[in-house]
Design a protein around this nucleic acid. Structure first.
Lengths: 368, 368
DNA sequence: GTCCAGAGTGAGAACGTTCTCACCACATCG
DNA sequence: CGATGTGGTGAGAACGTTCTCACTCTGGAC
């Protein structure tokens, strides 16, 4: 009697309990008013049949799924996994489930994910957009009334809340610290597509607008700002972009150190790149921080444990996620305030990997 | 005309296209047979109205959601984020979405997650069970016919596929390598609840059965196996369990090194613990590998970049996920073969953090 | 000319909930 | 004593799909 494959439904429970489906539904769903006696009867019938609610049917009629869609580039990346953790904690705390899609920075995948998720009728979307260029799908979502929050990357054309970090200021602060310590030849390892990065970091002011969108570009701009401030010309051979993986940073660092006047300090724009830089310095036998100072982005779990401990620009990674999710929940709850753009602060954590610039050679001392 | 809030439905599209809902549905859903002309008409109408399919309704009638539920303990942990990546890649490749829940090793949360996910009618579940003790909810799922695969932890009582690693053999191999190099005093940092770990690692054979379930316990058992093999008594003060965080491992390591006969080698049972051990050794001024050899579990991204590079037991982390997901998809596709238990192989990757045991003091030489 | 296959279509019944109404009985208030 | 709630209940209509069935054509085989 209680072993039906397709599982029992409310009518089944109602029949067994001897009440109408409406009453059974009220008892099970805990809404409306039901007498204690019927509630008991229905409860027992449900237990006997192994009744399990069908959220799909419920969502169909209520129009709400208690589900959030999360679209980000790569969950394997510790940055995103911590962001997701922040999102997930807030979401579950409020009774929402989380559907996750990795885009691998592909705009097509993102577009597709957004379509599928809206078709699944998620109550809201958290997106870390892959490409600031193609955003019609995001505009579409925002305008169709599905709550949307942009995570870690803001796009001006999309009328949605956003939670980002002031990447430019962060990189500027880190670079300033290096210039304060006397460093003038400062290498930058960006990871992004080379040509693009160079454009932001090097030649004058072109691209600043877009730099506010892209994380890496913003940081590159901050690097430039700090150098310009102390009157140092930004030299393009100091800006290296070989890719986002650790091995790429190893290559980039070796390239930097093989330059004619090799940098006395290196700024790596994310934690994996910093790791690669460290590895390369070790492999080259270059002493850190004696010969070269190193600053990374993101306070990964290993930064404090390595030798020397790494100086980093720490971002409130988890808070990016939790804050974004909180904004989204407000929207879902019906808030209609104009788009909010939250900018979280970063913090420069100084550890052993940074030291004053080594005494310059005489020739250089004269020239500067 | 095309700006309705609640978005257009198939009847709306059908009306505009001048066909029946059945035909419109066929044209949009790409099933049944529709003439090219009507398909075109319907397509245009849909575009004009901004029609977007409703997966909920579709799932209601088809009985399939193209969604997998994933329940694991902590997505922030690099191990799980890589497992998830493996799952997610396979799932998306097959057209499935992924709903994620973190349990933080809480059995209650897990039970609840499983309930909610089955109510959402996911097509299958991937679970890394928090507690081998309370498993009725998993048995329920398996018996109710929802495909289920256990990830990284097998539970005998649950009739479901599983994908795990042979933790015991892995830890045994790592420990053997250390004994081969002459190490006899080998510290073990487990992270798990102290009392429990000691029970597995130290006194004879009790608990071996359960050890096959729990990851940490399995590894502790492997450690013991290797020591027993070379006739070394397992001393309980060498087995330290302070917790799972890096700081815990720092404390544990310092505790180990302050022992009367401090260990000449340390085996840390996961990557975070190894990190803490490294940090502690550096803080203590103990040279690695000259004074103490160190072996960790899991080939994290930083293991190769630190000084010295860390010897680790590498697990095919991503493959745990992808393999599990593949098994699940087979089940969803209807396979009814008896439960499969896949055991993936680990690999000992030797790097600079391991060296022969330092020359023993005379007294010790005599005694051994 | 008859028959049949099959492509194209439409009407309407599912799927399993929640929600709106209407109804009843009973208590409370004027 | 009648009017006015009010807690408990049931009938039945949504929600937006897909699916089944029946129907109409057309074209080809006999």
């Amino acid at each position: 009697m209680d072993e039906r494959r397709g599982s029992a439904t409310i009518p089944d429970v109602a029949r067994l309990a001897g009440v109408s489906t409406a009453t059974a539904a009220r008892a099970l769903g805990n809404y409306g008013s039901v007498s204690a006696a019927t509630r008991e009867k229905v409860g027992q019938a449900a237990a006997a049949l192994g009744y399990r609610a069908n959220s799909l049917a419920r969502s169909m009629v209520t129009g709400t799924t208690n589900t959030l869609g999360v679209v980000l580039s790569d969950i394997e990346n510790p940055f995103f996994s911590r962001v997701l953790r922040g999102i997930s904690d807030v979401a579950h705390g409020a009774g929402f489930e989380v559907v996750l899609v990795n885009t691998d920075e592909s705009s097509d995948t993102e577009r597709n994910a957004v379509r599928v998720l809206t078709e699944k009728r998620v109550d809201g979307l958290l997106v870390c957009p892959a490409d600031a260029g193609s955003t019609d799908h995001l505009r579409w979502v925002a305008e169709a009334g599905t709550p949307l929050v942009l995570v870690d990357r803001r796009i001006r054309q999309v009328p949605a809340d956003s939670v980002v970090v002031d990447n430019r200021a962060a990189a500027r602060a880190a670079t300033q610290r290096l210039t304060e310590l006397g460093h003038r030849r400062i290498g930058l390892i960006t990871g992004m597509d080379g040509e693009l990065a160079e454009r932001f970091a090097v030649p004058g002011l072109r691209g600043i607008e877009r730099a506010l969108i892209n994380t890496t570009a913003g940081r590159a701009a901050g690097y430039r700002d700090a150098l310009v401030e102390v009157g140092v010309e930004v030299r393009s051979e100091y800006v290296v972009s070989e890719g986002f993986r650790r091995e790429d940073a190893v290559r980039a660092t070796k390239q930097l150190m093989s330059l004619d006047g090799p940098p006395t300090a290196i700024l790596a724009l994310d934690s994996l790149l910093a790791l690669g830089a460290m590895q390369a310095l070790r492999e080259l036998g270059v002493r850190c921080p004696d010969d070269v100072s190193l600053v990374g982005f993101d306070d990964a779990d290993w930064t404090e444990a390595v030798t020397p401990p790494l100086t980093v620009v720490a971002q409130p990674v988890q808070r990016i996620g939790s804050e974004a999710c909180r904004l989204l929940l407000e929207r879902i709850a019906g808030s209609t305030r104009p788009p909010v753009h939250r900018v979280l602060r970063t913090e420069l954590i100084e550890r052993g990997s940074v030291a004053p610039a080594p005494r310059p050679h005489r020739a250089e001392r004269l020239s500067s």
